[in-house]
């Protein structure tokens, strides 16, 4: 079940913090793996108030582009650890220019597929005022999801 199903229902709220893990962002089934189909649509109702956004170990893909994040004028922390980011996505990420100083959390090996080893990405972070924090893959107890099997499987 995608997180957007819940977020759409929560649209009337003025949320300041959202944490999502081990769920698709806004598409069901195979569609969730197609980054072109996935979007930040369900997060936009909270764009003015959201200060903390964590999308950890997302099932499927994050959206292909990140320009929608420019609408998040209060965002202070963006945690994408554990969520796969392709080279194209990392390049597209640079369309995002946060209004405030942003703390961006990525896996320590986010740059392994980049030709310049992430040098340009790091420079981009410096230029737009992003504090980049590379951290080891999570081993949080929160992410030890081993419980549900059938009959809950839809």
């Amino acid at each position: 079940m995608p997180a957007s199903t819940f977020l759409d229902a929560l649209a009337p709220f003025t949320l300041t913090a959202i944490r999502i893990a081990r769920m698709p962002l806004d598409q069901w089934g195979d569609d969730a793996r197609d980054e072109k189909q996935v979007s930040y649509r369900s997060l936009l109702p909270f764009a003015r108030t959201l200060r903390f956004l964590s999308l950890r170990n997302i099932n499927g893909s994050l959206p292909a582009t990140f320009s929608a994040l420019n609408k998040f004028c209060s965002l202070e922390t963006l945690d994408l650890r554990g969520s796969p980011l392709s080279v194209n996505q990392l390049q597209a990420f640079q369309d995002f220019e946060p209004d405030l100083e942003l703390r961006l959390l990525l896996d320590s090996k986010f740059d392994k597929d980049l030709k310049d080893g992430g040098k340009a990405f790091r420079q981009y972070c410096v230029d737009v005022g992003i504090e980049l924090r590379q951290m080891a893959p999570l081993r949080s107890k929160f992410l030890d999801f081993t419980i549900w099997e059938d009959p809950f499987e839809l």
């Binding site: 997180a3 929560l10 949320l15 959202i18 944490r19 893990a21 081990r22 769920m23 903390f52």
Partner: peptide, 11 residues
């Protein structure tokens, strides 16, 4: 309501 965490929630 100001914050929500959804970790592998199902319906």
């Amino acid at each position: 309501l100001a914050g929500i965490a959804l970790y592998d929630v199902r319906a």
